[in-house]
Amino acid sequence: MRDNEILSRISELVDEERGLRERLRAGELPSDEENARVRELETALDQCWDLLRQRRARRSAGEDPDDAAVRPAGEVENYRQ
């Protein structure tokens, strides 16, 4: 996945999250369903941002950015711990 594709995916995920929150405010979506999907979106966003950072770091170091790979959700979500 190229940088522009990752950024496009991030935009799609953010748009979906906004849509979910709007539907929740309008009473069109149960909050438990919204919360579950928002958690999924947050994880996917973290993975996208991590992949983009990996690609940029590899490029900056003179390495091939295409060698970057999506890391497992558990690794991306818990890397600060």
Rank of each mutant, 00 (worst) to 15 (best):
G27N: 07
R53Y: 08
E17L: 07
D46L: 15
Q47R: 15
G62R: 13
D50H: 05
R55P: 00
L7P: 00
P30E: 14
E42H: 11
L45V: 03
R2I: 11
A69S: 11
R37P: 00
D46H: 12
S31G: 03
D50F: 04
L13Y: 08
R53K: 14
A68W: 02
E12K: 15
E34C: 13
R39M: 06
R23Q: 12
S8C: 06
L41N: 02
A73M: 06
Q54N: 04
Y79S: 08
E17I: 01
A73W: 06
Q54F: 03
E75F: 07
D15E: 13
S8Q: 14
E40R: 06
A26N: 13
R23I: 00
D66N: 14
N78M: 12
A73C: 10
D66S: 15
R2E: 10
R59T: 09
A57L: 15
Q54T: 02
I6R: 01
L45Q: 05
S11N: 14
R58E: 08
Q81T: 06
E5F: 03
Y79L: 07
D50W: 01
L51T: 02
R80K: 11
D64S: 13
L51V: 06
R39Y: 01
E28M: 11
S8V: 05
I6Q: 00
L13H: 10
E40L: 03
N4G: 03
G74K: 08
D67C: 13
V14Y: 03
Q81H: 08
V38H: 04
